[in-house]
Design a binder for these strands. Structure first.
Lengths: 237, 237
DNA sequence: CTGTACCGGAGGTTGTTCCTCCGGTTCGTC
DNA sequence: GACGAACCGGAGGAACAACCTCCGGTACAG
């Protein structure tokens, strides 16, 4: 879509190039420092607490006052959007790389693993990818990933690696489901999504495999499961 | 929902027996009628909009004033809890029945299908089962279902029907994931959870199957997927 | 017909989120 | 080293939402 003019190569993070309407004078030293602090803080806070975090939260976490935060960013959405864009670009790039893999299933699995690893560590990102926060940004993701994914699945099927009943949106739905797992066990077992990815892949592939993954990431115990589900309480929304 | 008569012979629905501290006189005719209206309305509203519905909403949906609602029920939680309890009792009963099935896998699958069918139609219930609303009630569910599920999975493994790496909490996690799907496609394809249940079963069973289910419930088209994800926006929390 | 139980919904209370405002501080320049 | 512009901080107000109460008016039971 319209590449946001908000940012340059090293987007938001680096320099005073992102006031759009004005060739601004260089930020004063303290202002520049605080801007960086805010961006770093935002990254952490959004990753940890998700999009419902407040600009107030971000400011406080950066050790700054609220006013300072609002002077630098009109609102949290502007900030969040720019931050997410960077991360999503990385995921899309990973998919493009996967699309070039001569072994389509290996490419697909590799992509899923890297994309999920990023999402497992970032609750804000999960919310964007699951459509729970910014619809426009999610659309953009689908625009860029849809065709590549379709091609990859098609080729994996042609190669006899993936069952013929499977469709491209099954992959999207799988990612969404795995994000739910990642949300639930973010604290207890941050890599448990790998187990359920393995099971699901088992379900859509022609050959059974992944016994080793399932051994490496065993199921939650009954007690762990209960604790995790209870903690999930307010986790979304 | 179903058009069943509101006056079921079940707990909360029937009569003035649930004012605890007082052997109350029978409700006046209009009061009794309104009480039933409120209960029916609550069932619909919670199922459709989930637990974040307000007693105000329920009253309005019943065509009554807010005051009337608050006179009958101290708050929405009291009402919700009683309502959910009935539904959950049904699910637990289904599990107990499944536990008695001589074919453990058939029992397990039958239970999952019936439990998911109920949850797919009731967003409020999904929230309770996923721990997003009432922790105590969820605990109760786990207490009653945990042992039966464990036994069922164990027997299915002993019979060589389910892979040995699988644990009982995998079933719980699977249900949770399927609830996410049900949430997303509640409007677009209310039975699509069956497809993903089939895929997961494929992933945890020793034998591949379910080709027919996957054909009967095909994947969303790209366009459907996008629409559903976009609509999911505020669906949770 | 009369008194009591019940109805309705305006509006108060509390809690949350977002943002603004301005006295005081720091920076960079002369 | 001193002055003005740019910046900081956080109290607090505006906007919103959820929840519940109150009381004038209405419908039922005897």
């Amino acid at each position: 879509m319209t590449t946001t003019s908000v940012t340059s190569p090293a987007p938001i993070a680096s320099d005073p190039g992102n006031v759009p309407a004005e060739a601004s004078r260089p930020l004063r030293k303290d202002a520049a420092r605080n801007r960086e602090l805010l961006i770093a803080s935002a990254r952490e806070v959004f990753a940890q607490r998700g999009m419902e975090a407040t600009l107030d939260d971000i400011a406080r976490h950066a050790g700054l006052g609220v006013g300072t935060a609002y002077r630098h960013f009109a609102n949290k959405h502007e900030l969040a959007r720019a931050l997410m864009e960077q991360t999503i670009d990385g995921i899309v790039a990973a998919l493009d790389a996967a699309g070039a893999n001569p072994d389509p299933l290996a490419g697909l699995i590799g992509f899923l693993e890297s994309a999920m690893a990023v999402q497992a560590a970032d609750r804000g990102l999960r919310q964007v990818m699951m459509g729970m926060h910014d619809a426009a940004q999610m659309e953009q993701v689908h625009d860029r990933m849809g065709p590549v994914l379709e091609d990859l699945v098609g080729r994996a099927q042609a190669a006899g690696q993936v069952r013929l009943e499977v469709g491209p949106t099954d992959i999207g739905m799988m990612v969404t489901m795995l994000c739910t797992v990642a949300d639930i066990v973010a604290d207890a077992a941050p890599e448990l999504w790998r187990r359920y990815l393995a099971i699901y892949l088992n379900g859509i592939c022609t050959q059974t495999c992944s016994t080793d993954v399932m051994a490496a990431f065993p199921p939650l115990s009954e007690a762990q499961f209960r604790t995790a589900m209870a903690a999930y309480k307010g986790s979304l929304g």
